[in-house]
């Protein structure tokens, strides 16, 4: 799989927030075999070392880095944050978040399209965090995005894939665009379902970081991603409304009299 011409060894992407310790984060990334981790920026007081220590840890993981614009509620704020992230992390990849609604952290798709256009013109490779809406997807692609990150469910909700019909339609309309299910995945089975629907990758944070055993959950997601991907490649059967016997009925002793 490729994002903007970069070949990735794994289709699992992990967020780096909410782990109880840096060591647990590193072990979870290793167990999951994630190929990309997401990172962010925060204000840091002079002399504080947290940010510098985190940067050293991220570099040691040996994976691709995808900075986000989490918490940005406007186009200008998101664009400025993206520029700052490009300088700090040394990559032109950006997971673009423009949040429009606080309770659901729902993307402001109008601002998202505008920020995608601006950042693409500024040389960024934009990964927009969006909904499953087809028209928005089309606008994002026209604005320069070559990867889409539709949500499964609201960030951190763990609800899985809320609108399978919509996601299936999105996949079908843009069959060649790399798409990552981002947000809402709570269990390995949700990740497997994303791949069974034909999506290219998943991005997971809370479901691993806040699991009782994050390292084991990282491994579970790795296995689920492999299973879902293999299932999709094997071409699942179509669903039916009525039963269809799986055991051959020909030659059954249906006519035998019972004494």
């Amino acid at each position: 799989m490729e994002f903007y011409g970069t070949q990735l060894a794994s289709r699992l992407m992990l967020g780096t927030a909410q782990y109880d310790s840096p060591a647990l984060l590193a072990q979870s990334v290793e167990a999951s075999k994630a190929s990309v981790v997401t990172v962010s920026l925060r204000r840091e007081a002079a002399g504080a070392q947290a940010g510098q220590a985190f940067w050293s840890l991220v570099k040691s993981l040996g994976v691709h880095i995808l900075p986000n614009t989490a918490g940005c509620h406007g186009v200008r704020e998101a664009v400025t944050t993206a520029h700052m992230a490009r300088e700090v992390f040394g990559t032109d990849w950006v997971k673009l978040e423009v949040i429009g609604q606080g309770d659901l952290l729902q993307p402001d798709v109008f601002g998202l399209v505008e920020a995608t256009r601006i950042l693409t013109e500024d040389g960024f490779k934009v990964f927009p965090y969006t909904t499953e809406d087809l028209v928005t997807a089309e606008r994002l692609l026209k604005a320069g995005a070559e990867v889409l990150m539709p949500w499964g469910a609201p960030i951190g909700s763990g609800r899985g894939l809320n609108n399978i019909f919509g996601l299936r339609a999105l996949r079908a309309h843009f069959p060649t665009i790399p798409m990552v299910i981002d947000a809402g995945i709570g269990r390995p089975s949700h990740a497997a379902m994303a791949f069974e629907l034909g999506f290219d990758a998943v991005l997971i944070n809370t479901a691993v970081a806040k699991a009782g055993d994050p390292v084991r959950m990282g491994e579970a997601f790795r296995l689920a991603c492999d299973a879902g991907l293999a299932g999709y490649a094997a071409q699942p059967i179509e669903e039916r409304d009525m039963a269809v016997p799986s055991t051959p009925t020909l030659g059954l002793a249906r006519g035998l009299a019972v004494e």
Binding site: G15, T16, A17, Q18, Y19, L25, T38, V39, S40, L41, R42, R43, E44, A46, A48, A50, G51, Q52, F54, W55, V58, P67, N68, A70, R76, E77, T80, T81, H83, M84, E87, V88, F89, I155, G156, L203, N205, T206
Partner: peptide, 30 residues
């Protein structure tokens, strides 16, 4: 004042009284 200043321009950009400076560092993110 809300505008990104690249590191390469820090030597030449002058700060005025009352300016608002943001200083951001790497952090964990999802």
């Amino acid at each position: 004042n809300g505008t990104f200043i690249p590191a390469s321009q820090r030597d030449t950009v002058t700060i005025m009284e009352g300016a608002s400076l943001e200083v951001l560092a790497p952090m964990q993110g999802g």
